[in-house]
């Protein structure tokens, strides 16, 4: 049986959607193994299955979450290397008190900016990071920011339209 520990520590802390979780490092249920990806921890250990794993090779963008505000691929990130980090997933975008959806989530509903929906959480997370950094992106900015996101149904046009509506509303 191979070793699944981290030699330097026996636990880590993740702050996921503003909730702090402490995990032992190891092989038991509710622990995090050294080889666990962040996507696996989020989905299987924390039950946050809104983060989707499409290719599991870092090429499709569907597992995108925010790590200290920056969009990263959770399938290519080891959980043990996220100690002390703030992680935001699709489940963390809604206003916790009011239940109000994030403006991007609402715009995606209004524009039916999805078909099968499997890529949608990743695209919304990358869009959130984009708008946080640049509240009025151009069409090219939007397309570049989402260029690592695979959508096989081709909802791209409706996604771009939804995001543009948000930025146009703000301009007014």
């Amino acid at each position: 049986m191979a070793d699944r520990t981290d030699q330097r520590r026996d636990s880590i802390v993740l702050i996921v959607n503003d909730v702090t979780h402490e995990f032992g490092i190891g092989d038991h249920r509710y622990q995090v193994a050294a080889c666990d990806t962040l996507a696996k921890t989020l989905r299987e250990t924390l039950g946050l299955s809104g983060t989707k794993v499409g290719c599991n090779q870092g090429a499709c963008g569907s597992c995108t979450v925010l790590l200290d505000g920056i969009p990263i691929l959770s399938c290519m990130t080891l959980t043990v290397e996220c100690d002390g980090k703030q992680i935001t997933t699709i489940e963390g975008l809604q206003n916790k008190e009011t239940g109000k959806l994030d403006e991007i989530q609402q715009a995606f509903i209004d524009h039916s900016a999805f078909q099968c929906g499997f890529c949608t959480p990743g695209i919304i997370m990358a869009s959130r990071a984009l708008l946080n950094k640049n509240p009025s992106p151009t069409e090219t900015d939007i397309k570049d920011a989402l260029s690592g996101h695979f959508c096989r149904c081709i909802s791209h046009y409706q996604v771009v339209e939804a995001l543009q509506t948000i930025t146009e509303k703000k301009k007014k």
Partner: peptide, 21 residues
């Protein structure tokens, strides 16, 4: 007329349940 998909809220909040879930 364009009307929101019935499952839209589940999809955009990550609650839609796919086979892996």
């Amino acid at each position: 007329k364009a009307t929101p998909r019935k499952d839209a809220a589940e999809i955009v909040t990550g609650k839609a349940t796919y086979i892996e879930d």
